Amino acid sequence: MTGTEHTPVFDSHAHLAGADGATERLLRTMGSNGISRAVVVAGGAVDPDRLSRQIIEGGHVVDDADNDAVLAGCARSGGRLVPFFFANPHRHCADYRAAAGAFRGLKLAPSVHGVGLLDPRTKALVELADARRHGVYLHCLQRPGFGVAELVRLAAEFPTVTFVLGHGGVGDMDLYGVELIRPRANVLLETSGCLSVVVRTALDRLGLDRVLLGTEYPLQHPAVELAKYRALELPDAVWHRVTWQNTCRLIGEDVP
Rank of each mutant, 00 (worst) to 15 (best):
T2M: 10
E5R: 08
P8T: 03
V9L: 08
V9D: 02
D11V: 02
D11T: 10
S12D: 06
H13A: 07
A14H: 01
A14Y: 08
L16V: 13
D20C: 02
L27G: 06
L27V: 03
R28T: 08
R28D: 09
M30A: 07
N33L: 02
I35L: 00
R37C: 02
A38H: 03
A42M: 01
G44H: 01
P48W: 09
I55R: 04
E57D: 14
G59A: 05
V61A: 05
N67M: 12
D68C: 05
D68I: 11
A75Y: 00
R76E: 15
S77F: 02
G78P: 09
R80Y: 10
R80A: 15
R80W: 03
L81C: 04
P83I: 13
P83K: 06
F84H: 07
F85V: 12
N88H: 03
A94T: 15
A98K: 11
A102F: 05
F103Q: 09
L106K: 07
L106G: 10
K107E: 12
L108D: 10
S111W: 03
V112S: 12
H113F: 01
H113G: 03
G114L: 09
L117V: 14
R121G: 08
R121V: 12
T122C: 15
K123W: 02
E127R: 13
A129N: 02
A131W: 11
Y137H: 12
Y137M: 15
R143I: 05
F146Y: 13
A149Q: 06
V152R: 14
A155D: 09
E157T: 14
E157P: 04
F158Y: 14
G166Y: 07
G168E: 06
G169K: 03
G171K: 06
G171W: 04
D172C: 07
D174E: 11
G177N: 10
E179N: 04
I181L: 02
I181R: 01
I181G: 05
R182S: 14
P183M: 10
R184T: 15
V187F: 01
S192E: 08
S192R: 06
G193M: 13
G193P: 06
L195P: 00
L195C: 14
V197Y: 01
V197E: 14
V199R: 03
A202W: 04
A202P: 05
L203Y: 03
L206S: 04
L206V: 04
G207A: 09
L208R: 08
R210K: 10
R210H: 08
R210T: 11
R210S: 09
R210N: 10
V211M: 13
L213Q: 11
G214V: 12
T215N: 09
E216F: 07
P218N: 14
Q220A: 11
P222E: 15
P222R: 07
A223I: 08
V224H: 03
E225R: 04
E225M: 11
A227S: 12
Y229F: 15
Y229V: 00
R230N: 01
L232C: 05
E233H: 08
L234I: 07
P235T: 04
A237P: 01
V238P: 01
R241M: 10
V242Y: 14
W244G: 05
Q245A: 15
Q245V: 13
N246M: 11
N246H: 07
T247D: 15
L250F: 09
V255S: 13
V255P: 04
P256D: 11
